[in-house]
Nucleic acid binder design. Structure first.
Lengths: 143, 143
DNA sequence: TATACTATGTCAGGTAGCTGATATTATACA
DNA sequence: TGTATAATATCAGCTACCTGACATAGTATA
């Protein structure tokens, strides 16, 4: 490698590389739980906020509603999630965790806690609020 | 949305969301050039450093060497890239841009410059060096 | 030198997520 | 009220990328 300088100094490229490594680490530990990243995202979202629709979960997991359908179907078959009709809405189906789904959600959370903790530690000398504020600004710019 | 707090304060989740939006923006402008993100990554890498191997390019574009094979094959068919045997190595094949490949690389670069510029602008009040240093620390932690 | 190990390229098959299209329900509005 | 628009779910097909297996060439080491 002689001249990789322009790429190494690019924010976009470094955001990509950071996210890529984060994804790899997450996949590693989640695989040990028998969860995919998308599945873990669903469980994490549902434990924070039960009775979400397929569309909501898709948004939370950064995939399309069509893709979320199959993810959710898999979680239903596995017995981690149940869906029922929304009483006050003929189209919506609300998903929530079963007891075993909650247990699996906690396992996924436990597995990923060390990674998040390592990130927080690596922020220094910046504060977590400063780092989050930076990411918020970038997100707002990119919306 | 009632309680999304824990996710919104998570560094990992916000890294993912930032990268996701960046990816969408990049895809938009590159599509107008007729380029995929992977193709643009190859062209950008080759303009910075000619005569790279398939394995090198795969690493630079964050995909597997197997996947890069088909990307590179497509770029060869399109006439943007040529590959030749490395004189001093029986296995390596070195890729470089054709004149039209260079032109397309510049088009891709021009299309993405405003996005990178917007990111740089959004960093403030932090400096670019501070932001890059943060990403470097995160990458090192995640390796 | 011989032998194990690593790097590179390639083929084959699988999977996750995407786009497009459609039906149904809710909502906004004229 | 009626009608257009938006939201939600779902089916079908496609594509990009992955994993696994393998052949060949270079490198290290005993």
């Amino acid at each position: 490698m002689i001249k990789q300088d322009s790429l190494d100094r690019s924010l976009g490229y470094n955001l990509k590389r950071t996210q890529h490594r984060l994804r790899r680490r997450m996949d590693e530990v989640l695989k040990a739980c028998g969860l995919s990243t998308a599945q873990n995202a669903v469980l994490a979202a549902l434990i924070a906020q039960p009775d979400m629709t397929n569309a909501d979960l898709a948004h939370a997991a950064f995939i399309t509603p069509q893709s979320m359908q199959s993810v959710l179907a898999g979680l239903e078959v596995a017995g981690y999630v149940v869906r029922r009709q929304d009483d006050r809405h003929g189209r919506r189906q609300l998903a929530r965790l079963t007891p075993s789904g909650e247990a699996m959600a906690l396992q996924g959370r436990q597995a990923t806690v060390p990674i998040e903790a390592a990130l927080v530690k690596a922020i220094s000398p910046l504060s977590k609020d400063e780092a989050l504020a930076l990411l918020y600004r970038l997100q707002k710019t990119l919306y």
